[in-house]
């Protein structure tokens, strides 16, 4: 029997960010992306994987860093995740929301 992991089953904080990034699945990412009316292309997935790898390394992320990743530039990053690209892509990637110290 298969267990289908849905967004409902993974623990998130009140803003919808995954509590434990290791629980992330692609299926969950697709569900969250759909709440932003986003269909994930291969470019989206490349960005998401890069964000997850950097988060695992303990790197503090910024939009500028995504722009310097070699995967996309800042303008395209905005087109991929319109509105607030880093906070939206972080949510879909299952990593914490970008925040300041306070």
């Amino acid at each position: 029997m298969e267990t289908i992991v849905t967004a409902v089953e993974l623990q998130t904080n009140p803003e919808g960010y995954l509590v434990n990034y290791k629980e992330w699945t692609q299926e969950w990412a697709r569900e969250v992306a759909s709440t932003y009316q986003l269909e994930l292309t291969s470019k989206h997935w490349q960005v998401l994987e890069w964000l997850r790898a950097k988060h695992a390394e303990g790197v503090a992320l910024t939009i500028r860093k995504v722009g310097a990743s070699g995967i996309t530039d800042i303008k395209e990053f905005y087109q991929l995740f319109p509105g607030g690209p880093l906070k939206i892509s972080s949510k879909i990637a299952g990593i914490p929301k970008p925040v300041s110290c306070i």
Partner: peptide, 16 residues
């Protein structure tokens, strides 16, 4: 600000 607000951490936002 490029962030989602002047305060971004939950308790700090709640109190300040």
């Amino acid at each position: 600000t490029p962030l989602s607000g002047a305060f971004t951490k939950p308790k700090a936002t709640q109190l300040l």
